[in-house]
Write a protein that binds this DNA or RNA. Structure first.
Lengths: 248, 248
DNA sequence: AATGGGAGTTGCAAAATATGCAACATCTGA
DNA sequence: TCAGATGTTGCATATTTTGCAACTCCCATT
């Protein structure tokens, strides 16, 4: 649509593979080197590229600034939406997005089950800390002192016969979560529902939010639920990438 | 130089402050909205911007990719050079750049003192772990198990009367380094030289390298050396930013 | 020191490209 | 259904980009 802009962006992409000379770059976009030079100078004036001594151009610092600004701007909810919606529409189960705020875990988004049986939960509502998979994911990422503080205020009411009942068992569970990279709620909250959750990460690898899938036991037994883990983890990774996370 | 490119880059910069509508963006660059639309579409085709539902454009994921590629491409030595050269030329003292590689600390760059007395050191040479400021910086960032492993193979030969002589004292020193954000070598290596060092960090806050300034005691006493800490830390931060680090 | 080659830079004229316009399309809310 | 706001397209115009060729600068080689 805009030729010169298109060429310039192609140059930037090319520079991503390493520093290049003026002639190399001219070859890539197939124009005269004077044309390339003028494009590079404009890019340079916006700090998109910089000269690397003589004879070489490379990506400039504006990219870092922009990427970081974009990250601040971008909120998890919106960035994760396509991946979560996809998971929800493919499997038809309830998908929740939750985030940690100041000692609490809050549901910030929800994609309804396509089945009859629906979960009682609402955006904005707090998730119980001791018996939900999302809370386990989010608390597992806290620093030791922050976790201790939260733990000090936690209660462990028995809700089902699987409910984790005390700090020691809960800490051990968090260790498993960290080791596995996912969390489960094996009917610890309600007898008839179980749930798996995975972390959505940001550019620095920090956990921004947790995504979970909740399924009534009548539809899928525990083993069947766990078989969806790779799918859930892939969903979480796709959402993470949208939030600036770099896999591996 | 290239008008349309310049306008497009201005748009990208503008979008960094948050999602904008077509009309807002047209206003910023002062052209007809159809022109803006065409620029945005080209940017969109390169994933530099993306449509945020309707009515809004925001920065796209290409920025993340490019920023990360730029980081991999960019090596510390080259990225840190301007800042280090500046420090060296302003103060005239020896500046070293060192990095941690597989249990060892290696000098990867050096800017010579402008004074008569020069340090015996060479690029590519290993720095002693127990008595140099750069090693303290780099080891202080290791994970606990990695540090233990290095510590197991460390020796603590007495080189001066200030040399740290055992693992316990060394670990305590590393705690101080972490707390302070800088390290010193208070004549622990050679009687007549002392030294301060600071970390150069990458995009995820990890320590990529350490920069140090070494000064003969006859030129500057210990207090005088420490008075240069703010300058050294500013230098390290400038180099860090070049490596993708985001302050605060 | 002179020479030659490679890389970068500039002015200019030609022409391809980007632009504004106005008409049209689409969506939202009354 | 309509009004208004926002987004989109075709087209003629002229502005902007382009390639060219000449020139400079820097380095390496003789």
């Amino acid at each position: 649509m805009s030729q010169s802009l298109d060429r310039a962006l192609t140059l930037v992409n090319q520079l991503a593979t390493g520093p290049k000379t003026l002639d190399e770059l001219s070859g890539v976009i197939g124009v005269h080197k004077s044309t390339t030079l003028r494009l590079l100078r404009t890019l340079e004036s916006h700090r998109f590229v910089q000269r690397d001594g003589v004879h070489h151009y490379r990506l400039g610092t504006a990219l870092f600034d922009l990427a970081n600004l974009a990250l601040e701007e971008r909120d998890v909810r919106r960035a994760a939406e396509p991946a979560l919606r996809d998971l929800n529409s493919r499997l038809g189960h309830t998908v929740h997005l939750a985030s940690y705020e100041d000692g609490e875990v809050i549901y910030i988004d929800k994609y309804e089950s396509r089945h009859q049986m629906r979960m009682y939960s609402r955006i904005g509502r707090r998730a119980p800390l001791h018996c939900t998979a999302v809370a386990k994911i989010l608390l597992a990422d806290l620093s030791a002192p922050a976790l201790q503080k939260v733990l000090a205020g936690m209660e462990f009411p028995r809700l089902t016969e699987n409910t984790i009942l005390g700090p020691a068992a809960y800490l051990a569970e968090l260790d498993r979560v960290r080791a596995n990279g996912y969390a489960v709620d094996n009917s610890e909250h309600e007898d008839f529902i179980h749930c798996i959750a995975a972390p959505i990460k940001g550019a620095r690898g920090e956990v921004l939010a947790a995504v979970s899938m909740s399924v009534p036991k009548v539809l899928l037994d525990y083993e069947g639920l766990l078989s969806h883990l790779p799918d859930l983890l892939a969903t979480a990774e796709a959402a993470s990438v949208e939030c600036g996370y770099v896999p591996r």
